[in-house]
Computed example of a mutant assay.
Amino acid sequence: MSADVVAGLKWERPRLDVPAAVGEEEVTGIFRFTNTGNDPVAIMRVRSSCGCTVPALDQDVYAPGESGELKAILTVGERAGPQRVVLTVNTDSPGHPTTRLIFQTNIPEVVKLRPRVQVWRQGSARDWREVSIETDPAYTVSLSGDSEADFLFDHELNPVPKTPGSYLLRLRPKGTTERSQTKLIIQVKLPDGKKAVSTIQLLIR
């Protein structure tokens, strides 16, 4: 029996490399299969190695000769760069109950933040810190305005003169007497109206 026949299911491609476009909120991979056995096969469970990816089936039981699709839906969020997710499929077919499917994609980095974490010591002076932001000059960068960090920190976001696509973000806490950990949300609007988000970790400890 070939390596791609598992639990009576023959998988068209057990490994998928799916390209991701800039600004996409989700990346979807579709694993197609056929029940090549003589008995119905029930898919009992599909587990994902990452909470960012949700598996989805149209049905659980497939008759002999019947084909189906398993979708793997990855939520992009703040992720960037290469992503690899393993889907483990468990069925009720004796002898071949389990198979592993590989879902890979490479998410374009929309914005670069340096540094991504700023830390103040508890009780220290309310000094300003700076974060460098770089993106495509065609994109628009802004702050969300509704995160917890907007109430705990002063901030100034300004474009860098004569450097399209570059911004300087200045930050300082409104107080340092209490420990806190929060995120400031950076929004990037693309020319087609799509949005991407990234965050800066802000800590007082």
Rank of each mutant, 00 (worst) to 15 (best):
P164L: 07
F153S: 00
A125H: 08
S124I: 00
R79E: 05
A3W: 05
Q118V: 14
D4Y: 01
P14N: 09
P82E: 08
Q118L: 15
A7S: 15
V141Q: 03
T88M: 10
P40H: 09
G193D: 03
S48V: 06
P108Q: 05
P55I: 01
E130Y: 00
P64G: 13
G8K: 07
R15P: 07
T28F: 04
E178T: 10
V61W: 02
Y167K: 01
N158T: 15
I186P: 01
E25S: 15
G29S: 09
K183D: 10
K174D: 02
P97I: 01
N90S: 12
F31W: 00
L143S: 11
N106T: 09
R205F: 07
H155N: 05
Y167G: 01
Q187N: 14
A63W: 01
T98G: 08
G175F: 08
E178L: 12
R100L: 08
V141D: 06
K10R: 15
E109D: 10
F151D: 07
K183G: 04
P97M: 12
A42L: 04
K10C: 13
P97H: 05
Y139L: 15
Q181S: 13
R129A: 12
V54H: 09
N38A: 15
V22N: 05
P108K: 03
G81N: 08
S166H: 12
K112T: 12
G65T: 11
D4Q: 13
Q83C: 14
T28P: 10
P14L: 04
A196R: 15
P94R: 15
R84N: 11
E130N: 02
V18A: 09
G65P: 01
E156P: 00
S147V: 09
L70D: 06
A7F: 04
D92P: 11
A20G: 09
K194P: 06
P159L: 03
H155I: 03
L113S: 02
A3R: 11
E78R: 06
T75V: 07
T99Y: 10
R15K: 14
G145C: 13
D92Y: 10
V197W: 06
P14I: 06
P108Y: 08
E12Y: 11
P115H: 07
T98I: 14
E109V: 07
R116C: 00
D192K: 09
S93T: 10
V41H: 01
T91M: 03
S49F: 05
V18C: 09
R15H: 13
R121L: 12
G175N: 12
P14E: 03
D92K: 11
E109M: 04
S147C: 14
I133Y: 01
A72G: 06
G193M: 01
A196H: 04
D39L: 14
F153M: 10
G145K: 15
R126P: 02
G95W: 00
M44I: 04
S93P: 05
R47G: 11
G29Q: 10
I200V: 14
E178A: 14
L74W: 07
L203S: 11
E66R: 14
D127I: 14
E109A: 07
